[in-house]
Design a protein around this nucleic acid. Structure first.
Lengths: 173, 173
DNA sequence: CCGTATGTTCAGATTATTCTGAACATACGA
DNA sequence: TCGTATGTTCAGAATAATCTGAACATACGG
C-alpha cells in the first residue's frame, strides 16, 4: 500500500477506534498492521506512528489480548515481529467479545437482578423487563457470533437486507 | 420503585453508559427517568443524582437530542418536567442511530474510498475489501432497525438463537 | 417597569485517560 | 562474566473529558 494511502487509513481507523471502545493508539497500531503485507517490528511501529516504544509495547499487548494480532519469528533476527490476524470479521467479533466480557456482563448481572426484584411495579417494571430482554438478545447475538462466526455473518448480512457475500453495490430506487 | 433499588439501577445503567458511548451523567439521568413512574423536574433530578443543575440541564438536552426523553407539561407548574420514551428498544436504536450518524458514517466514508483505490494489493487489498463489507453490513443492520424496529427485533432475536418474545430462560446442555 | 422562579451557558476547576521516557528486565554472543 | 540489543513497566507529564457554579437569559405576575 502506498505510504500516503496507508497513512490515511491509519488515521481513519484510529478515529473509528472510539466506536469499538479501543483507544486511538491501539487502533492505529492495528491499522498499520492491517495495511502491511509484511510483519513489522515494535521499533518500526513506534517510528511510523510517531509514538513511544512504551506506548507501542502496551498497544501490542492489548491487541494480542484481543487476539487480533500475533507475534511471528523472522529467521536470524532477535526482534519480535507482528502481523494481524487475517480475517477481519473474526477480529471484529473478538474485540466485541472481549468488551462484552469486560463491561457488558457485569452490568447485565446487576440489571438482571433488579428486573426480577419485587421493587418495581407498573410501567417501570415493564421497562426493566424489556431492558433485560434487550440485553439478553444483544448478549445472545454476540455469543452466537463467537461460537459460529460464519453462519452468523450470513444471518447478519440477511438482516442488513443484502445477499450474503455480495460485494457489488446494490442499486437503490 | 423503592429508592435503594432505583439507586442501584441508576448506578448500573450509568456504568453501562460507556458501552453505548454516552457519558455517566447522561446515562444516570436517563436511568432515573426510566425508574420513575412520574415526570420529574430538572431540580429534582439534580438533587437525586447529586449533580449540578448545569450538568442536569446539559444531560437532558443530550437525551432530548437522542430522542429518548421528552418534556411534559404539569398543569399549574412553571417548571419543565421530563419523562422517558416508553419503548426501550426504540430508545436503544435511537441512541445507536445517533452515534452512527455522528461517528460511524464519516469514518466509513474514509475507509470506503481507500478500499476502492489502486494503492492496495494482495492480502492488504483483501482485508480492506472485507472491512468495507463488514462496515456496510453493520450500517445495513442499523439502518434496517431504524426503518423497521419491530421486524428487525424479531430477526435479531432469531440470530441470538432464542424464540421471539420468549422471556423464560432457556435450558442449556 | 421590577422581582422572582426557572432554565441555560460556558470559563475554569476537577477528574480520568493516555502517553512518554527513563529505569529495569531478559537474552544472547563474545 | 560483560556489553549490547531488545522489550516491558510504571511514575509522572500531557491531554482530554467531565462537572461545577456563577453569570446570564427568559417568562411570568404584579
Amino acid at each position: 500500500m502506498r505510504t500516503d494511502t496507508a497513512q490515511r487509513f491509519v488515521e481513519a481507523w484510529g478515529a473509528m477506534g472510539s466506536l469499538w471502545g479501543i483507544n486511538r493508539s491501539v487502533a492505529r497500531v492495528h491499522a498499520l498492521l492491517m495495511a502491511s503485507e509484511e510483519p513489522i517490528s515494535l521499533e518500526e511501529i513506534a517510528e511510523r506512528l510517531q509514538i513511544s516504544k512504551g506506548n507501542a509495547s502496551m498497544s501490542l499487548r492489548e491487541l494480542r489480548n484481543f487476539g487480533v494480532v500475533r507475534q511471528v519469528e523472522v529467521p536470524a533476527d532477535r526482534r519480535d515481529f507482528y502481523v494481524t490476524e487475517p480475517d477481519v470479521w473474526t477480529m471484529f467479533f473478538r474485540i466485541l467479545g472481549e468488551r462484552k466480557r469486560r463491561e457488558f456482563d457485569p452490568a447485565l448481572q446487576a440489571i438482571h437482578g433488579l428486573a426480577s426484584e419485587a421493587g418495581a411495579t407498573g410501567a417501570v417494571r415493564g421497562r426493566l423487563e424489556q431492558m433485560a430482554d434487550l440485553l439478553a438478545t444483544v448478549e445472545g447475538v454476540v455469543n452466537r457470533f463467537l461460537q459460529d462466526p460464519q453462519s452468523s455473518r450470513a444471518a447478519l448480512a440477511f438482516v442488513a437486507g443484502m445477499p450474503f457475500g455480495d460485494k457489488a453495490r446494490r442499486k437503490r430506487g
